[in-house]
Design a protein around this nucleic acid. Structure first.
Lengths: 229, 229
DNA sequence: CAGGTCCATGACAGTTTTGTGACACTCTCT
DNA sequence: AGAGAGTGTCACAAAACTGTCATGGACCTG
């Protein structure tokens, strides 16, 4: 991340967009803005922002489609996205979170609150380590050595379970939908059954859960799974 | 927010203050006024206004200091503030916005314009904390982790109860009719019995109300339900 | 206080969602 | 080719969650 974090704002209400840009710039962010979903994707490809503020109702491509495409490309899969939804569209919000949005704001909102979320989301995204060992409780994973230990003892893991655990450890506590897990662990356009995720969750659980201790992986009914909490 | 939104006006130019008060009252707001920064803070502590109009140049404490103190206290951190600055004080304006003002007006301005901004700011204000989790007393809900805690302890909630609680937390204190809840929680076009809402309210209550404490959800006869209040 | 409206509650039968073991297949290595 | 590990699916079992209803209590109105 550069000295000044860069933001991309995708919003087609010009007045609102300007307001947001103004506040973000006042806060010291480098800001780019577009009203168009397709253009947004181009702008991301051209220069990767540190975070994206994405309106749900925009021209040409609906916000959720933009989000989906972002998540599909490995290069952009980890860029934090805050979505903006209108009041009452709870459905959208939930779909958004399941598709991989990091946070959401309900319109109307105060710019100050948005800034707070941006900051939170940036702070959270930073510790996505590259090469550092990932830790959760007494569980450790060394991405370089490709090695997992629980309380010091090595745990054998198959490749799929390993990738899945990495994914969880990089997002501790956050619910991951089966779709997200499929995309992250198997790669985009693998036509794997959703339920296959369940099976691998089970295998992962069996491997990392010492018998007698509480389950490290939480099932969130009708939403997905999460590591710890 | 009461039937009539209440405003606090902090302005030491008596003529201007009177003008503002007159217009605001004409618009139906309940207005209190002071010329003094310290007194302003006391008045806020005594009775929380729905919005504050804050002059930058006032007695004893500079406006920005008042603002800073307001923002520091969690109870007042979300009250919308419109600051009044003199022409040319660009610096102040930016500092003000960064400190958490919601809007600003440059003197001289027309009362009509001020009223418009007040209205905008009231519409935008959400009585919700700036953070990522939704809070009401010792009840916290993290939408991303999909997790609810009361006084730190996790509370298991079914999907429907969860969505319902989110809805309430985003509108603290406001009564929600059964129709509104149906639309928000079940989706617009679900042909669910109205009374089913009651049942889920009951389940939500049972889940989040620690035995022995007062009910977090208020029943409003022949109107609906509300969170806290 | 009679009668009506509105709300709380427990039960329940039906659905949806998850957990689990088994199995056939593919790969890699020898 | 044979052994062994790892995978993806399935079918069935087990949970978890849902929407309704019937009943009784609370509250209001005259």
């Amino acid at each position: 991340m550069a000295v000044k974090p860069s933001l991309l704002i995708v919003e087609d209400d010009l007045a609102l967009a300007e307001l947001i840009v103004w506040h973000c710039e006042a806060e010291g962010y480098v800001v780019r803005q577009t009203a168009d979903g397709e253009e947004a994707l181009l702008m991301v490809a051209e220069q990767m922002p540190d975070a994206i503020i994405l309106d749900w109702m925009i021209k040409h491509v609906p916000g959720i489609e933009v989000l989906r495409q972002l998540r599909r490309d490995k290069a952009t899969a980890h860029v934090p996205v805050i979505m903006l939804t209108a009041r009452g569209e709870e459905e959208d919000r939930i779909r958004g979170l399941k598709t991989g949005a990091d946070d959401y704001m309900t319109k109307p909102f105060s710019p100050r609150e948005l800034l707070a979320r941006v900051e939170a989301v940036l702070r959270r995204s930073r510790p996505v380590t590259g090469g550092q060992t990932l830790v959760a409780g007494d569980l450790e994973l060394d991405p370089v050595a490709h090695r997992v230990t629980r309380g010091g003892v090595a745990i054998p893991l198959g490749p799929t379970e390993f990738r899945m655990l990495v994914h969880f450890l990089e997002r501790p506590g956050r619910v991951q939908s089966r779709e997200q897990l499929l995309d992250a662990v198997w790669g985009m356009d693998s036509d794997i059954e959703l339920r296959t995720v369940d099976v691998h969750i089970r295998r992962l659980r069996k491997a990392i859960n010492l018998p007698g201790t509480t389950d490290l992986i939480r099932t969130v009914r009708s939403a997905g799974y999460a590591l710890g909490g």
